[in-house]
Simulated assay, not measured.
Amino acid sequence: MTIAVLVLPEAARANDSVYTDLDLDQCQTLAEDQMGVSLKCRGYRGEPVYFKEGDLRQSVFYGRVDKELIEGAFESFSAFNHINTKIEWRLNDAGEPFAAILRWFIDNPGPEGGSTKASRGEILVVSRVGTSDYGGSCMVALVDAKANADANVKARQIADDTAQDFACGMQEPEWVGKRGDLVSERTFSWPEGYVVE
Rank of each mutant, 00 (worst) to 15 (best):
T2V: 14
I3F: 01
I3V: 11
P9T: 08
A12W: 08
A14V: 11
N15V: 14
Y19G: 06
T20P: 06
T20G: 03
T20K: 00
D21W: 08
D21F: 10
L22F: 09
L22Y: 05
L24V: 11
Q26R: 01
Q26V: 01
Q26E: 14
L30V: 06
A31F: 12
E32Q: 15
Q34Y: 09
S38K: 12
K40L: 10
Y44R: 00
R45Y: 11
G46V: 13
E47N: 13
F51I: 02
F51T: 09
E53M: 09
G54H: 03
D55S: 15
D55F: 03
L56H: 14
L56F: 15
L56D: 14
R57W: 02
Q58F: 15
F61R: 03
Y62W: 10
G63D: 03
G63M: 06
V65W: 01
E68K: 10
I70M: 12
G72H: 07
A73M: 00
F74N: 02
F74K: 03
F74P: 07
E75C: 09
E75T: 14
E75S: 12
E75L: 11
S76L: 06
A79F: 15
H82R: 13
I83T: 15
N84R: 07
I87D: 04
N92R: 00
A94Q: 10
G95P: 12
P97R: 02
P97N: 08
A99I: 07
A99Y: 01
W104D: 02
W104L: 01
I106E: 07
P109W: 08
P109E: 03
E112Q: 14
G113M: 04
G114P: 02
S115T: 15
A118R: 08
R120F: 08
G121K: 10
I123G: 11
V125F: 00
V126A: 10
S127M: 08
R128W: 02
T131W: 14
Y134W: 02
G135R: 11
S137P: 12
C138H: 05
V140L: 04
V140D: 02
L142A: 01
V143E: 07
D144S: 09
D144K: 05
A145M: 08
A145I: 10
A147M: 00
N148G: 10
N148L: 03
D150A: 07
A151S: 12
A151T: 00
A151V: 00
K154H: 07
K154A: 13
R156N: 09
Q157V: 09
I158R: 00
A159C: 07
D160Y: 09
C168F: 10
G169C: 04
P173I: 04
P173R: 02
E174V: 14
W175N: 05
W175I: 15
V176Y: 01
G177W: 13
L182T: 09
S184K: 05
E185D: 15
R186M: 15
S189E: 13
G193K: 08
V195M: 10
